[in-house]
Nucleic acid binder design. Structure first.
Length: 267
DNA sequence: CAATGATCCTGTCCGC
DNA sequence: TGCGGACAGGATCATT
């Protein structure tokens, strides 16, 4: 499930493989996968890459000529660098044609992923309001205190809310709470300053470590060259039966999502 | 407004 | 061998 480190890994790979290329076309093979801004008049292609960024789990590609592309992989989306004449994958939902007869195939079995092509001036219309970037300097305990203030929802659910923190998903939230020794049911607004400091610090550490290891490959996630990440080898509770101290890992649900935690380590 | 639940979608896995 | 059902979950929408 692509979360911040996986999205960053995909973006880094994408930029390495196509930075010097021109985008020639964007083809859509599944209705709804590609969303086109109605204010796009003329054909935006061909266009070069004029800049790129990641916001939360969104990939933003800014093109020469005043257009931008937003890519969200959702759960099973992946981008694979290949050739224009590659045989179409069974789950290929869209495809960027780039110069020198190359291609970026957007493969997404569960079809939740989206690609938006819009005028750069209209970009914000297509991206929801997101919380602070966890790797930015302004992500700290006082920010968490502000957004968690008065909130009774479990910290597990709060950390998944993209309006509070941009980019965390189920895997890293479980790992962060274990490392902080915080019980996932603790109401977000009741956390003390030392817990908020621990969350801010461990969030950065886990994400940086995961990015350094090219993300976590549970089931679908692959890098753009189709290689797997390595962070799954360093998970401490997610999909584990025992925590590093040998205690049994428990599973419960918060809002339909599995929570893995150690009731002994996490009070 | 806050919190919870349903929804979308298909591959995979499990029990029978 | 195959069938039904549960499960995976990011974001959005509906409900309480």
């Amino acid at each position: 499930m692509p979360e911040l480190p996986e999205v960053q890994t995909v973006l880094d790979g994408l930029v390495r493989s196509i930075a010097a290329k021109k985008f020639i076309a964007l083809k859509c093979y599944y209705p709804g996968t590609v969303i086109t801004d109605p204010e796009i008049g003329e054909n935006p292609f061909p266009a070069g890459l004029d800049g790129f960024e990641r916001r939360g789990k969104y990939i933003l590609l800014h093109l020469t000529g005043g257009h931008s592309i937003i890519i969200h992989l959702r759960m099973t989306g992946k981008l694979v660098h290949g050739r224009e004449d590659d045989e179409q994958n069974k789950h290929e939902r869209a495809c960027f044609l780039v110069s020198d007869s190359e291609a970026l195939h957007f493969i997404d079995p569960r079809t939740f992923g989206k690609i938006v092509l819009c005028r750069t001036a209209n970009l914000e219309r297509y991206i929801p309001a997101l919380g602070r970037e966890p790797l930015s300097k302004d992500f700290d305990a006082s920010y968490l205190a502000k957004v968690f203030s008065g909130r009774r929802l479990p910290i597990k659910s709060a950390l998944l809310d993209q309006r509070m923190i941009a980019g965390l998903g189920n895997i890293y939230v479980n790992e962060i709470l274990y490392r902080c020794r915080i019980n996932p049911d603790t109401p977000a607004g009741e956390l003390r300053d030392k817990d908020l400091k621990a969350i801010a610090r461990q969030t950065k550490l886990v994400l940086e470590e995961a990015i350094a290891k090219n993300g976590t490959s549970i089931s679908d996630f692959r890098r753009i060259d189709d290689k797997t990440g390595e962070f799954q080898n360093f998970l401490q509770v997610y999909q584990k039966t025992e925590c590093p101290k040998g205690h049994a890992v428990h599973i419960k649900r918060h809002g339909g999502r599995s929570t893995f935690y150690c009731p002994i380590c996490q009070k």
